[in-house]
């Protein structure tokens, strides 16, 4: 079920997001894929390859949950308004960023290869964050 009144369901906006994500994935070594979801867990767009066995909808829901739990954990630690969080795995980093404009809240998940270190991963993802925030602000 979708809410047609929600601007995040706009095809124009999704296409703009998709282009930003595609160009970021192409231009950054070590980035496996990017996925963007609404803050309540609906997949918006991604750069996951078609042959992948990753379930985009489940990943979007888990990313939103992870962002939500990060916010809650930060708040309980008297450090409100989490901006992002990192998961370290044996196969590389997952970085999750919460992006908020005046009207929208989205979550951006980046998966990085094992060889990519924290600094490069964050730097790469922050570049995408700027592009996505610009799109969100302009769309308003």
């Amino acid at each position: 079920m979708t809410d047609s009144s929600n601007p995040l369901n706009s095809n124009t906006l999704k296409a703009a997001f998709r282009e930003a994500l595609k160009s970021a994935t192409k231009g950054s070594s070590g980035m496996e894929f990017l996925l963007m979801a609404t803050s309540d867990g609906y997949a918006l767009c991604d750069t996951i390859s078609d042959g992948s066995n990753i379930n985009r909808d489940s990943l979007a829901a888990m990313a939103a949950s992870f962002a939500g739990i990060s916010d809650g954990l930060a708040s309980q630690s008297n450090k409100p308004a989490a901006n992002g969080s990192i998961i370290e795995t044996n196969a590389g980093l997952l970085v999750c960023k919460q992006l908020k404009s005046n009207r929208h809240e989205v979550v951006l998940l980046g998966a990085f290869e094992q060889s990519t270190n924290h600094g490069i991963a964050l730097w790469s993802l922050n570049k995408v964050v700027s592009d996505v925030l610009a799109i969100l602000e302009n769309y308003n």
Partner: peptide, 8 residues
């Protein structure tokens, strides 16, 4: 862990 509901 409440967020904005996008599916009203």
């Amino acid at each position: 862990t409440e967020v904005q509901n996008s599916n009203k």
